[in-house]
Design a protein around this nucleic acid. Structure first.
Lengths: 182, 182
DNA sequence: GTCTATACACCGATAGAC
DNA sequence: GTCTATCGGTGTATAGAC
């Protein structure tokens, strides 16, 4: 198994159980690797695995969210593209946000600056698109923040209610909400 | 120390560290009680403490959110009252939502139905107020759901950005958003 | 009620064979 | 690379003195 494949499986565990709830036993089971083998890929153990997971998601978001947002198609198309990839990122609302999960407990101290940076980049990039769509910078910024709030909030609600409908509704309305047509 | 006082301190630990990250050592430190003393108040240990915390918050929400929402003042006043108490519940955005935290990992299996019920009651009660304010039931329900989404999402963002501003903005706009005046 | 002491399982991590 | 075996530490939980 490649390191990349292992990271994808490890990611699922961290998303479900959080940092402290993710044990080497669970990671071993999820990857099919023995504990010692995990240390072959990640010499610094659990912390390095969480770091790898964060880096992996970081790269994925750059490629599948930020790059599309900076493309040369129309603002509406770019926002639509983002929504589709956000839907994939969170498996239509069935998976938590790793940024949200790793901002709890001990993990908060370890990864806070990286999480903060990822959220900030997302909001900033989104706001730039809205400014291009002739929205006032202050309003653009606020709407972008609201978009992240709605995505995160609907993930929480979907998890708590065991129903992904709220997430899907939010995502569907997202482009028009951002552009202010409603 | 009374059981109630202990629960309030235990609540803080679960909010910060989540279910798996909350250890008896941390609870012992937070309460000032030895581990064995904790078992005097909560014979079934950690699970019972989490249950007590959930029940405590449940009662608090009934008294400080649901009851005000069902009072006989105007819809706007009731929503305003809710916002103020939500602000207290989450310490102006500095504290997580225990319902959101306990819907992760092992705790999800243990407490899912109670968490689901609490969220559902909140949305239902909110929607009733909006219907009284002559809003169509379908729209009332959707806006109520959006309110919970925005509260939860802004808490996540506030935590990730280490900045409670988003939460406070959401809360301030909440009554007018719900009534549809914006 | 609160404590010290302790039981036993599981934690993260490592050694070393293959 | 992957494994088994094992380490020291900490987890939850309990016994029993005071």
């Amino acid at each position: 198994m490649s390191r990349e494949e292992a990271i994808a499986k490890i990611l699922k565990v961290f998303r479900q159980y959080g940092y402290e709830g993710t044990t080497l036993s669970r990671l071993s089971k999820a990857t099919g690797l023995g504990k010692a083998s995990l240390y072959h890929y990640f010499p610094n153990g659990k912390e390095e695995m969480a770091q790898a997971v964060l880096d992996f998601v970081d790269d994925w978001m750059k490629a599948n969210i930020f790059v599309p947002l900076k493309s040369d198609s129309t603002p509406r198309d770019r926002l639509q593209q983002m929504s589709e990839n956000v839907d994939r990122l969170y498996c239509s609302g069935e998976q938590t946000c790793i940024l949200a999960v790793l901002s709890l407990g001990e993990a908060k101290d370890l990864f806070h600056s990286q999480i903060q940076q990822a959220l900030k980049s997302w909001i900033d990039t989104l706001a730039e698109v809205l400014v291009e769509a002739d929205i006032e910078p202050t309003l653009a910024r606020q709407r972008s923040e609201d978009a992240i709030i709605q995505i995160q909030g609907s993930l929480v609600l979907a998890r708590g209610m065991n129903d992904t409908t709220p997430f899907q509704r939010v995502l569907k309305q997202l482009p028009e909400m951002l552009l202010g047509n409603w």
